[in-house]
Design a protein around this nucleic acid. Structure first.
Ligand SMILES: [Mn+2]
Ligand SMILES: [Mn+2]
Ligand SMILES: [Mn+2]
Ligand SMILES: [Mn+2]
Lengths: 222, 222
DNA sequence: ATAATATGTTAGATGACTCTAATATTTTAA
DNA sequence: TTAAAATATTAGAGTCATCTAACATATTAT
């Protein structure tokens, strides 16, 4: 295991490569909120340790070893989040920041026990898959709310955003993982969407919010 | 809050001052397993931050501010240990090392929740008192097993040693916090002690082990 | 093909924390 | 009261992780 800083670099490289394919030094700098030369020297160090392969202007790629480390950290992060919600009774909007710290705890006993208590869970409180202890990740097929036709009914499976303000927003709207929603109206003008919710209420979501909500279609046009 | 390193210095200074009164740079170096000059410069830094008062050859003293920080860390450590035992089902011999990491987690929510779940506990799994959120600590009067006369019966209230090997040793002997024991024999020659235990077994403890076990006398000589 | 833009590097410095080697001061004991 | 022992300090250097300022290279758009 590397230092805390190293772990955060590895994790960010993994996240960016999932999101955008190529990972540039400059992108990483923005994500980690450090300056370019800092990233430049750290990437060199990671390359020396065979955690990444780096070709200037071509991007940074995690090696197998690096990927394995990233997945181990993500596993710990997501197990921690679920534990905080299920066992400790915290809200899904307040666990990410704590998990950012707990993911660096070095104790197989601790995480083995969490995994056991939660009965080898497959998803975190935000619907993100939890890699198993070998780093294997179950990748669901994902459809965003913004891609659904009017009239369709779907179940919310995940949200791709950990930020408290976003989750507070969903809480205020009364939306949760597992909720069933029907698309009532898609606005051409601003991309906003009106949903019919199990609570019987109609909910309006902006494009910006809807695109971060992932669903599985359960009922096709009636 | 200071850095992780700073927190560990503060905690060690507190522990040493409880144990031996005066805390010398040299003692601290031994405890933290770093060299003298490292401690020397860190102590200067802590003094600049008004966390300690330092007079060479006279010892290091925590200021009120430093004491408060130490107690906050100790509180987190002990809450974590108890949580790991009571909620997560780990053994008292394996929680210290994990708590050494969890004590640095910065989240009042996390610790507030642990405190609540455990119902504002007063003692950790080793019988050590847990400071309250104001840093107030309930200091029990302590009698060591080695100070009991033959024939007395007492209850084990605490052990002053977190090391796994020591606690493994007690586990092997079948001794736990709360157990009632009667002093059968005190050996003059080597200071060892023979106990009658609730399990009906006789248990022999060396002086080295017995002196780390604290008790409350429940039955005086019959 | 040149200019503009995106992307990356080098040099040199800083702060936190650590080390070794050499030296200094204070306390205590003979 | 001098020597020995305990305690502490300074000087100088190294690693990790960061920064600013200046410069360099590659990609792309005109
Ligand atoms: Mn998260
Ligand atoms: Mn999550
Ligand atoms: Mn402990
Ligand atoms: Mn303890």
């Amino acid at each position: 295991m590397g230092s805390l800083t190293e772990e955060n670099y590895i994790k960010s490289i993994y996240a960016l490569s999932e999101a955008t394919g190529e990972v540039y030094v400059s992108e990483l700098a923005k994500k980690l909120d450090v300056k370019l030369p800092s990233v430049n020297s750290m990437v060199k160090r990671l390359a020396t340790k065979k955690l990444v392969a780096y070709a200037p202007y071509k991007g940074i790629k995690l090696t197998e070893k690096g990927k394995k480390e990233a997945l181990a950290i993500i596993r710990k992060h997501r197990l921690a989040e679920l534990f905080l919600v299920k066992v400790m009774g915290l809200g899904w909007e307040e666990v990410h920041d704590i998990a950012e710290q707990l993911e660096h705890v070095n104790s197989s006993r601790f995480y083995e026990r969490i995994d056991e208590l939660l009965n080898r869970p497959k998803f975190d409180p935000h619907g993100e898959p939890i890699p198993d202890s070998n780093g294997k990740i179950y990748n669901q097929q994902r459809t965003s709310l913004i891609d659904l036709e009017e009239g369709l009914t779907a179940t919310i499976t995940a949200v791709t955003e950990d930020e408290k303000s976003f989750l507070d927003h969903l809480n205020a709207k009364g939306l949760q993982i597992g909720d069933s929603v029907t698309i009532m109206k898609r606005e051409m003008f601003d991309g906003s969407i009106t949903l019919q919710h199990k609570s019987k209420k109609e909910i309006l979501l902006t494009h910006q919010v809807a695109e971060r909500i992932w669903v599985e279609v359960t009922v096709t046009r009636s």
